[in-house]
């Protein structure tokens, strides 16, 4: 499907979604609360079939966080980018999608560990890279560690 078709299809599924077409692929901007129902539809809808979640990124925008999901349909060969905005930076929460895409399990652990996004209903949320008692989330922009900070 081309960008326009994807756009109409997704706005049918989620009327509140806004779009950003500046990049290579169609960007779908949504709120964190809308993510799980949209994700289920993206995966299961016959005309979409986004079965491959190939990149999960958390971005710290200083005022809020956003989760960026890159999705690809391996059969239908189309790609979209879903950006879920998490308004509450201090208590960032979003639904886990590891039941839909199993790969999300590890990627979400990474996002939790380094960016502090809590994934609801994740089977085993834990510190993946850092020690269990680590304070703070290193990839956040305001993270300061006097001892280990790499200043280049």
């Amino acid at each position: 499907m081309i960008k326009e078709e994807l756009k109409t299809k997704i706005s049918e599924l989620l009327p509140t979604a806004t779009f950003d077409e500046t990049g290579e692929w169609l960007n779908v901007l949504i709120d964190a609360k809308e993510w799980l129902p949209l994700a289920t539809q993206l995966r299961n809808d016959v005309s979409l079939q986004f079965d491959f979640l190939f990149c999960v990124t958390a971005v710290d925008w200083k005022t809020h966080l956003s989760m960026v999901y890159h999705l690809r349909a391996t059969q239908l060969e189309h790609i979209i980018v879903v950006k879920a905005k998490i308004a509450d930076r201090n208590n960032a929460e979003i639904e886990s999608v590891c039941k839909i895409w199993r790969t999300a399990e590890l990627h979400e652990l990474e996002a939790y560990d380094l960016m502090g996004v809590k994934f609801l209903h994740h089977p085993g949320l834990r510190r993946l890279f850092l020690t269990d008692d680590w304070v703070g989330y290193p990839l956040r922009k305001d993270y300061v560690d006097e001892v280990n900070m790499i200043k280049l």
């Binding site: 590890l106 380094l114 085993g124 290193p138």
Partner: peptide, 19 residues
């Protein structure tokens, strides 16, 4: 099998934000 990672994590992503 449960992987526990981070033994060679250098946080290249954070480092690259200043490169």
């Amino acid at each position: 099998v449960e992987p526990h990672l981070g033994y060679i994590h250098r946080s290249i992503e954070k480092m690259d934000e200043s490169l």
